[in-house]
Amino acid sequence: MIEKQINQKAWFMVLPVFLLVAFSAIIPLMTVVNYSVQDTFGNNQFFWVGMDWFRELIHSERFHDAFLRQIMFSGIILSIEIPLGIVIALAMPKEGWGVPVCLISMALPLLIPWNVVGTIWQIFGRVDIGLLGHSLAALGIDYNYTQEPIAAWLTIIAMDVWHWTSLVVLLSYAGLCSIPDAYYQAAKIDGASRLSVFRYIQLPKMQRVLLIAVLLRFMDSFMIYTEPFVITGGGPGNSTTFMSIDLVKMAIGQFDLGPAAAMSLIYFLVILLLCWIFYTIMSNVGEESSNGGV
């Protein structure tokens, strides 16, 4: 009988990644924790304030508003992009010349940098020179994203859907392609409807990739900064000031490092909790359905 060899050499392979993460994430995070309990007026001089910044932040209306806007934005984005991505993936051809055409046209928006996407939509939506803004104005629709909060929100949501639905499509398509033909043949023999095929074959098989899609889209939309910053700069008023924009205003604009650090930590905790909840729910739903013998 072969005895199992215990080899600890793999730890050394992990060391470079650990060092990289330490320098890029752990040490900066520790610094943020240190800043969050102190006040500074520059010149690397800090004064202990305890939990004051956290107390102030938790009771601040500005933080509540930015947080609610952020939750609302992520909720809207997920509820549009996930179903839309699945529908497009289902409609895409599985063989023939249409496959590369669809895949490439889907991948195109993903290749464009965030600030360029922001600029494209900023110009696209302008009433004077933009195609969208000008066309809507010609149709008699009152649309001006620099002055009306609803128009600004619609523009940012449309931009995000345009930019990121492709990611959900590509992930769902990969999930769909991995389903063996035997499943469809069995469904055909049983006389399953199109809806049953989707509900009992395609959706369970896509669960893993959808988990990744939801997590990626949630995290990305929850920390969105560049695009709304380029399009609206957080305006009109504060209507599109999401948490990241508010955080940058506080940390760099006002140089309030202490409150900004406290806000970063609460932001971090919210993301950590929501991701944990998403991950736990979706991985357990996946296990239950695979145990159920679908």
Binding site: I27, M30, T31, Y35, V37, Q38, W48
Partner: peptide, 15 residues
């Protein structure tokens, strides 16, 4: 590590 602005409570927390 001055730039990290360490304090005794936060150092204790991380330890």
């Amino acid at each position: 590590f001055n730039w990290m602005a360490w304090t005794t409570p936060t150092a204790t927390f991380f330890i």
